[in-house]
Protein backbone atom coordinates (compact mmCIF):
# COMPACT_ATOMS: atom_id res chain seq x y z
CA UNK A 1 0.00 0.00 0.00
CA UNK A 2 1.30 3.34 -0.92
CA UNK A 3 1.56 5.97 1.72
CA UNK A 4 0.83 9.51 0.84
CA UNK A 5 3.17 12.25 1.81
CA UNK A 6 1.60 15.68 2.09
CA UNK A 7 2.95 18.12 -0.50
CA UNK A 8 5.75 20.16 0.97
CA UNK A 9 5.01 23.85 1.27
CA UNK A 10 6.78 25.90 -1.35
CA UNK A 11 9.71 27.62 0.28
CA UNK A 12 9.14 31.34 0.31
CA UNK A 13 11.78 33.50 -1.23
CA UNK A 14 13.30 35.87 1.27
CA UNK A 15 13.22 39.42 0.10
CA UNK A 16 13.50 42.80 1.74
CA UNK A 17 9.78 43.44 1.39
CA UNK A 18 9.34 45.15 4.73
CA UNK A 19 10.53 48.46 5.99
CA UNK A 20 10.58 50.17 9.31
CA UNK A 21 10.68 53.87 8.60
CA UNK A 22 7.09 54.42 9.59
CA UNK A 23 6.15 55.77 6.20
CA UNK A 24 5.20 52.39 4.88
CA UNK A 25 1.64 51.48 5.79
CA UNK A 26 2.42 47.88 5.08
CA UNK A 27 3.43 45.13 7.39
CA UNK A 28 6.73 43.48 6.94
CA UNK A 29 6.79 40.40 4.78
CA UNK A 30 6.65 36.97 6.30
CA UNK A 31 4.22 37.97 9.03
CA UNK A 32 2.00 34.96 8.50
CA UNK A 33 0.01 36.67 5.77
CA UNK A 34 -0.07 33.67 3.50
CA UNK A 35 -1.71 35.27 0.49
CA UNK A 36 1.13 37.63 -0.17
CA UNK A 37 4.11 36.14 -1.89
CA UNK A 38 2.42 33.00 -3.04
CA UNK A 39 0.87 33.60 -6.43
CA UNK A 40 -2.46 31.84 -6.48
CA UNK A 41 -1.94 30.45 -9.94
CA UNK A 42 0.78 28.30 -8.36
CA UNK A 43 -1.29 27.43 -5.34
CA UNK A 44 -4.27 25.17 -4.86
CA UNK A 45 -5.36 27.04 -1.77
CA UNK A 46 -7.75 29.11 -3.85
CA UNK A 47 -9.94 26.09 -4.60
CA UNK A 48 -10.49 25.55 -0.88
CA UNK A 49 -11.08 29.25 -0.29
CA UNK A 50 -13.56 29.41 -3.16
CA UNK A 51 -15.42 26.35 -1.94
CA UNK A 52 -15.64 27.69 1.62
CA UNK A 53 -17.07 30.93 0.29
CA UNK A 54 -19.54 29.07 -1.89
CA UNK A 55 -20.68 27.15 1.17
CA UNK A 56 -21.04 30.44 3.07
CA UNK A 57 -23.42 31.65 0.35
CA UNK A 58 -25.41 28.40 0.62
CA UNK A 59 -25.56 28.84 4.39
CA UNK A 60 -27.10 32.30 3.85
CA UNK A 61 -29.68 30.85 1.45
CA UNK A 62 -30.79 28.22 3.94
CA UNK A 63 -30.56 30.66 6.86
CA UNK A 64 -33.02 32.88 5.01
CA UNK A 65 -35.33 29.91 4.38
CA UNK A 66 -35.08 28.93 8.05
CA UNK A 67 -35.95 32.39 9.30
CA UNK A 68 -38.90 32.45 6.91
CA UNK A 69 -39.88 29.03 8.26
CA UNK A 70 -39.82 30.20 11.87
CA UNK A 71 -41.65 33.46 11.14
CA UNK A 72 -44.30 31.83 8.94
CA UNK A 73 -44.92 29.11 11.47
CA UNK A 74 -45.06 31.50 14.40
CA UNK A 75 -47.33 34.03 12.71
CA UNK A 76 -50.11 31.87 11.43
CA UNK A 77 -52.88 29.72 12.78
CA UNK A 78 -53.14 27.63 9.61
CA UNK A 79 -49.99 25.56 10.15
CA UNK A 80 -50.66 21.82 10.21
CA UNK A 81 -47.77 19.40 10.49
CA UNK A 82 -46.98 17.44 7.35
CA UNK A 83 -46.77 13.67 7.79
CA UNK A 84 -43.08 12.79 7.89
CA UNK A 85 -42.32 10.22 5.16
CA UNK A 86 -40.61 7.24 6.81
CA UNK A 87 -38.28 6.71 3.87
CA UNK A 88 -36.39 9.84 4.91
CA UNK A 89 -34.79 7.83 7.72
CA UNK A 90 -33.46 5.41 5.15
CA UNK A 91 -32.35 8.23 2.85
CA UNK A 92 -30.45 9.82 5.71
CA UNK A 93 -28.60 6.56 6.35
CA UNK A 94 -27.73 6.34 2.65
CA UNK A 95 -26.35 9.87 2.63
CA UNK A 96 -24.34 9.35 5.80
CA UNK A 97 -22.92 6.17 4.28
CA UNK A 98 -21.89 8.13 1.18
CA UNK A 99 -19.78 10.46 3.31
CA UNK A 100 -18.09 7.42 4.78
CA UNK A 101 -17.37 5.88 1.36
CA UNK A 102 -16.05 9.21 0.08
CA UNK A 103 -13.55 9.34 2.93
CA UNK A 104 -12.57 5.76 2.10
CA UNK A 105 -11.98 6.80 -1.50
CA UNK A 106 -9.81 9.69 -0.34
CA UNK A 107 -7.79 7.39 1.86
CA UNK A 108 -7.17 4.95 -1.02
CA UNK A 109 -6.45 7.73 -3.47
CA UNK A 110 -3.28 6.12 -4.76
CA UNK A 111 -4.54 2.58 -5.02
CA UNK A 112 -6.50 2.56 -8.23
CA UNK A 113 -8.87 -0.39 -7.78
CA UNK A 114 -9.87 0.47 -4.23
CA UNK A 115 -10.20 4.18 -5.01
CA UNK A 116 -12.49 3.51 -7.93
CA UNK A 117 -14.61 1.09 -5.94
CA UNK A 118 -15.24 3.56 -3.10
CA UNK A 119 -15.66 6.43 -5.54
CA UNK A 120 -18.35 4.57 -7.51
CA UNK A 121 -20.04 3.58 -4.25
CA UNK A 122 -20.22 7.24 -3.24
CA UNK A 123 -21.69 8.28 -6.56
CA UNK A 124 -24.18 5.42 -6.41
CA UNK A 125 -25.26 6.26 -2.85
CA UNK A 126 -25.73 9.89 -3.86
CA UNK A 127 -28.01 8.81 -6.69
CA UNK A 128 -29.93 6.43 -4.41
CA UNK A 129 -30.49 9.31 -1.98
CA UNK A 130 -31.93 11.47 -4.75
CA UNK A 131 -34.21 8.65 -5.92
CA UNK A 132 -35.24 8.15 -2.29
CA UNK A 133 -36.19 11.82 -2.06
CA UNK A 134 -38.33 11.49 -5.19
CA UNK A 135 -40.04 8.50 -3.60
CA UNK A 136 -40.70 10.59 -0.48
CA UNK A 137 -42.33 13.31 -2.58
CA UNK A 138 -44.40 10.73 -4.40
CA UNK A 139 -45.60 9.32 -1.10
CA UNK A 140 -46.70 12.78 -0.03
CA UNK A 141 -48.45 13.40 -3.35
CA UNK A 142 -50.18 10.03 -3.06
CA UNK A 143 -51.42 11.15 0.35
CA UNK A 144 -52.84 14.33 -1.18
CA UNK A 145 -50.13 16.59 0.24
CA UNK A 146 -49.02 19.09 -2.40
CA UNK A 147 -46.80 22.18 -2.35
CA UNK A 148 -49.75 24.48 -1.71
CA UNK A 149 -51.66 22.24 0.71
CA UNK A 150 -50.29 23.82 3.85
CA UNK A 151 -47.41 26.13 4.76
CA UNK A 152 -45.63 23.20 6.38
CA UNK A 153 -45.86 21.16 3.17
CA UNK A 154 -44.73 24.21 1.17
CA UNK A 155 -41.60 24.39 3.30
CA UNK A 156 -41.13 20.62 3.14
CA UNK A 157 -40.98 20.65 -0.65
CA UNK A 158 -38.97 23.87 -0.72
CA UNK A 159 -36.26 22.74 1.70
CA UNK A 160 -35.91 19.16 0.47
CA UNK A 161 -36.09 20.33 -3.15
CA UNK A 162 -33.44 23.02 -2.76
CA UNK A 163 -31.19 20.55 -0.95
CA UNK A 164 -31.74 17.96 -3.69
CA UNK A 165 -30.73 20.46 -6.37
CA UNK A 166 -27.51 21.15 -4.48
CA UNK A 167 -26.84 17.45 -3.99
CA UNK A 168 -27.51 16.84 -7.67
CA UNK A 169 -24.73 19.34 -8.30
CA UNK A 170 -22.49 17.22 -6.08
CA UNK A 171 -23.39 14.03 -7.98
CA UNK A 172 -22.64 15.78 -11.27
CA UNK A 173 -19.27 16.85 -9.85
CA UNK A 174 -18.52 13.23 -8.86
CA UNK A 175 -19.49 12.02 -12.34
CA UNK A 176 -17.40 14.74 -13.96
CA UNK A 177 -14.36 13.79 -11.92
CA UNK A 178 -14.90 10.10 -12.79
CA UNK A 179 -14.97 11.10 -16.43
CA UNK A 180 -11.73 13.04 -15.94
CA UNK A 181 -10.07 10.02 -14.38
CA UNK A 182 -11.26 7.82 -17.24
CA UNK A 183 -10.22 10.30 -19.92
CA UNK A 184 -6.75 10.82 -18.52
CA UNK A 185 -6.46 7.17 -17.67
CA UNK A 186 -4.71 8.28 -14.51
CA UNK A 187 -6.47 5.93 -12.13
CA UNK A 188 -7.03 8.56 -9.48
CA UNK A 189 -7.52 12.21 -8.71
CA UNK A 190 -5.41 14.99 -7.28
CA UNK A 191 -5.63 15.63 -3.56
CA UNK A 192 -7.11 19.09 -4.13
CA UNK A 193 -9.91 17.95 -6.42
CA UNK A 194 -10.75 15.23 -3.92
CA UNK A 195 -10.47 17.51 -0.91
CA UNK A 196 -12.70 20.22 -2.36
CA UNK A 197 -15.30 17.71 -3.51
CA UNK A 198 -15.30 16.07 -0.10
CA UNK A 199 -15.76 19.46 1.56
CA UNK A 200 -18.88 20.08 -0.50
CA UNK A 201 -20.22 16.57 -0.11
CA UNK A 202 -19.83 16.45 3.67
CA UNK A 203 -21.38 19.89 3.92
CA UNK A 204 -24.41 18.69 1.95
CA UNK A 205 -24.56 15.73 4.30
CA UNK A 206 -24.51 17.99 7.36
CA UNK A 207 -27.03 20.33 5.78
CA UNK A 208 -29.36 17.40 5.23
CA UNK A 209 -29.11 16.33 8.86
CA UNK A 210 -30.00 19.88 9.86
CA UNK A 211 -33.00 19.98 7.50
CA UNK A 212 -34.06 16.50 8.56
CA UNK A 213 -34.13 17.55 12.22
CA UNK A 214 -35.84 20.84 11.39
CA UNK A 215 -38.60 19.06 9.49
CA UNK A 216 -38.86 16.24 12.02
CA UNK A 217 -38.98 18.39 15.15
CA UNK A 218 -40.51 21.66 13.93
CA UNK A 219 -42.48 20.32 10.96
Amino acid sequence: MATIAPPLPKPKAQSPVGSGDGFDQGDSGGNGDHGAGRPGSLSDQRYYTGMMLGLAAIVMLFAAFTSAYIVRKGLSDDWRATAFPGILWLNSMVLLASSFTLEKARRWRQVQARFQGWWCATTGLGMIFLIGQIVAWQQLVAGGVYVHTNPSSSFFYLLTGTHAVHLLGGVIALLYLSWRVWRRNSGSLGATALGVTALYWHFMDGLWIYLFLLLLIAG
Binding site: G37, R38, T49, G54
Partner: peptide, 24 residues
Amino acid sequence: ALLGALNFITTTIDMRTEGMTLMR
Protein backbone atom coordinates in the same frame (compact mmCIF):
# COMPACT_ATOMS: atom_id res chain seq x y z
CA ALA B 1 -23.46 38.26 -8.14
CA LEU B 2 -22.68 35.33 -5.82
CA LEU B 3 -20.24 33.82 -8.32
CA GLY B 4 -18.61 37.21 -8.76
CA ALA B 5 -18.32 37.82 -5.02
CA LEU B 6 -16.77 34.40 -4.45
CA ASN B 7 -14.20 35.14 -7.14
CA PHE B 8 -13.31 38.60 -5.80
CA ILE B 9 -12.78 37.38 -2.24
CA THR B 10 -10.71 34.35 -3.25
CA THR B 11 -8.58 36.45 -5.57
CA THR B 12 -7.86 38.99 -2.85
CA ILE B 13 -7.03 36.35 -0.26
CA ASP B 14 -4.99 33.94 -2.34
CA MET B 15 -3.63 35.69 -5.42
CA ARG B 16 -1.60 38.59 -4.05
CA THR B 17 1.94 38.80 -5.32
CA GLU B 18 5.05 38.70 -3.19
CA GLY B 19 5.24 41.62 -0.78
CA MET B 20 1.61 42.62 -1.35
CA THR B 21 0.59 42.26 2.28
CA LEU B 22 -2.95 43.11 3.29
CA MET B 23 -1.99 46.50 4.63
CA ARG B 24 -0.21 47.40 1.41
